[in-house]
Design a protein around this nucleic acid. Sequence first.
RNA 1: GGGAGUUUAGCUCAGCUGGUUCAGAGCAUCUGCCUUACAAGCAGAGGGUCACUGGUUCGAACCCAGUAAUUCCCA
Length: 870
Amino acid sequence: MEIPSKYSPNETEDRIYAMWLEKKVFKSLPNDKPAYTIVIPPPNVTGVLHMGHMLNNTIQDLLIRRARMRGFNACWVPGTDHASIATEAKVVQKLRKEGIKKSDLSRDAFMEHAWEWTHKHGGIILDQLKKLGASCDWDRTRFTMDPKYYESVIDCFIDLHKKGKIYRGERMINWDPAALTALSDEEVIHKEIQSKLYFLKYQIEGTTEFLTVATTRPETILGDTAVCVNPKDERYTHLHGKKVIVPLVNRAVPVIADEYVEIEFGTGCLKVTPAHDQNDFMLGEKYQLEVINMMNADGTISEAGGMYVGQERFAVRDQIAKDLDAAGLLAKTEEHLNKVGYSERTDVVIEPRLSLQWFVDMKDLSKPALENVMNDTIRFFPPKFKNSYRNWMENIKDWCISRQLWWGHRIPAFYAPDGSFEVAKNIEDAVAQFQAKGASWSAADLKQDDDVLDTWFSSWLWPISVFDGFYSKEELDYYYPTADLVTAPEIMFFWVARMIVAGYEYVGNFPFKNVYYTGIVRDKQGRKMSKSLGNSPDPIELMQQFGADGVRVGMLLSSPAGNDLPFDESLCEQGRNFANKIWNAFRLVKSWEEKIDASLEQPESSAIAVKWMNNRFEQVLAEMEDGYDKFRISEVLMQTYKLIWDDFCAWYLEMAKPSYGKGIDSKTYNDTLDIFQNLLKVLHPFMPFLTEEMWQHMDSWKNESEMICISNWPAAKTFDANIQKEFEEFEQLVTEVRNVRKKQNLPNKEALVVSFMKTANRNSSFDAAFKHLCNITELNEVSEKMSPSFSFMVNGVEYFIPYTASVDVEAEQAKMKEELSYLEGFLKSVEAKLSNERFVQNAPAAVLEGERKKQSDALSKIAAIKEQLG
RNA sequence: GGGAGUUUAGCUCAGCUGGUUCAGAGCAUCUGCCUUACAAGCAGAGGGUCACUGGUUCGAACCCAGUAAUUCCCA
């Protein structure tokens, strides 16, 4: 069979993936084996694959594939998130393009559109993950709005409400005036904005004096109900208890004194607008101030504002500044840098708004979640994230979970006409609950809460609900807690922390053992990849260009946990080249199949090569296992890369390769296949398609296991560090000979004679391989130095290769002199150290010995060069 | 304003308990090769004031203090 010299992933990958699916190798059901479970961070149901997903899912696939090969019952649960606000925004946008306004639709009609959209776009991302090679158990695909999942979210709400952990209250929340919904603190992005500080003049009642107040939001004077100064501020002591007139509005409001006010900021006077600022609200409660809600939900001025009614908030800001100025009530304006909150989804400025919302009381719920991360019951990689986790958890605030949206889990609260309500699973239960309390409302009287729950209020149950854990313990007991969670640090608070909270509350145990935080994928200029910048490559195109394996390697080559990944297509190219390298190694070994000569004994050079390569494999395997334990994924990949490219291809295969036209002995051939097989196994998690394709081409491998993805991970064996030391000596020797060949322009075809100075310490293990690799006919021991000849020292032994006619003797001598002066300098520094009494007294024996060896090596090299120079 | 990081070769990063793993890797670069697996390759080579300033130590990329640059999180 002819195998092409270039590996073409496009022809291979779909075929291999189809085989895996057909053989159901990713399927997991509880059995006798230990479980190894990962739940996917569910992408938005209508999302498309971006580079962040690629990184994230490559890592998950790598972990799950390795676990599968190590004999675990590996279960990777895929699924999607309904992404309440994000999806609803997309649907609203789509309807708008069709000329339909959301406000013109009934809730049911809107939901129909939303489901239609979900069915049309949902699941695309999961198909894209298949291209990547993701070995999910697709039969388990979950969606956060699946009927059973939906039910678990509602039951969770009801349960927490019963426990008194969920309450309804009027609070200052973050209001998105574009999406017309409340947002959690985590959905607000603070940006530093150059804005203006307006200095407004408030007349002191009954005088002609004015008090100047600085504000960034002059339009909110419409809602002013007090002015506050610091009690320690002597400038204003005389005003305590007085009243001032709000400019333009002409309302008299009290001057109150509270430590909250910063004396240094602005004029030291603060206007208090309890309905439109978090801190003002607090002051309002403390001093029982009137609350004037002067803004509508959409950010326009309300009737209560009394002026500018119906106008947009920022237009009013400009207008009111002009009007104040015209009235002589604007003292001045200053440029001012301040932080303004923006909606994560709609990017409009958030309004603090007073409204009735549902909250989860997080104080007690969060305690076990904090404790068990701090004591490493749940481990974070990298651990530095424990700090910010603790910071957040120690200052945790109640979680606003209601959203004024339709797409999501509708809050199970039913209101009676008198305003009382019951939290219940359905309207019948609600009626019964009312009746139990003596209120005889019928179903027709009741109205369910219009709002839905925050998306994260469903995804925080993900590791439980994907196993139907609220209704059956069977799968939960087997798969939970899961092994690893792979996610972005950005959603540590949104999601990771809350899953831990829910885990302890509902299962009494952590949801995952390890959390691996990936970095953010950035472009070459260090910018975050985003749609608006257009700097994100299309993952599907990348995979077409470099193969899924190439892209996987590219993603993992430089992504230590928690570090950002500066992405560059050339990394994928490196991955593709690596695939091709292995492919060609395979072609070589495959070609030996027909060259096996049973009459041949295994040559000594091959025997040592096999011995070394096996030993080397064990050594690197041990390093790799250690790397995996520490989640140092890119290091493990690099170790694998070098093991295959350098050790196996560049050294082993060259040593084991028969001379041109010669056959190969069957022992070397079989040994090579065994080595190759192990290499493919440890490579498989990184490059699943390539390794599976090669596996399928080799019958003897298929005898062990039908597919590499379900073969057995190599068991670690002991290794001998000495063999590696001897090899490194041999490596140096080969390099020296190659250099001599190069200097003399001697091709490898021309055989050489090499001599070495007689010594007791020389190790000859690799001599056969040395002769084979460097085409050396004779390796002679001599007792006198040869001249004229090239000479070099390897581990204290001096080697000689006679000059040929073409050598530039003077240039050679100049080089030797240079080397000599370097060595003499080096020797000096070593001797200086050794003559330092305090060093000799304090340094440990091993270090001292090392220095003495440096000294003696340098001395002998110097002697050799001097002799050579004559 | 509070907190957490980062700074080592042109680029991306290792460097774990202060000392032979100590200045390293991959990529890129340069030189020579289409050598019978692979030019998506092979062989060889060059490249660093470990951000800066001080300190501790026989000894510092590593520990301490300060400075600068930079990233992120929280308010």
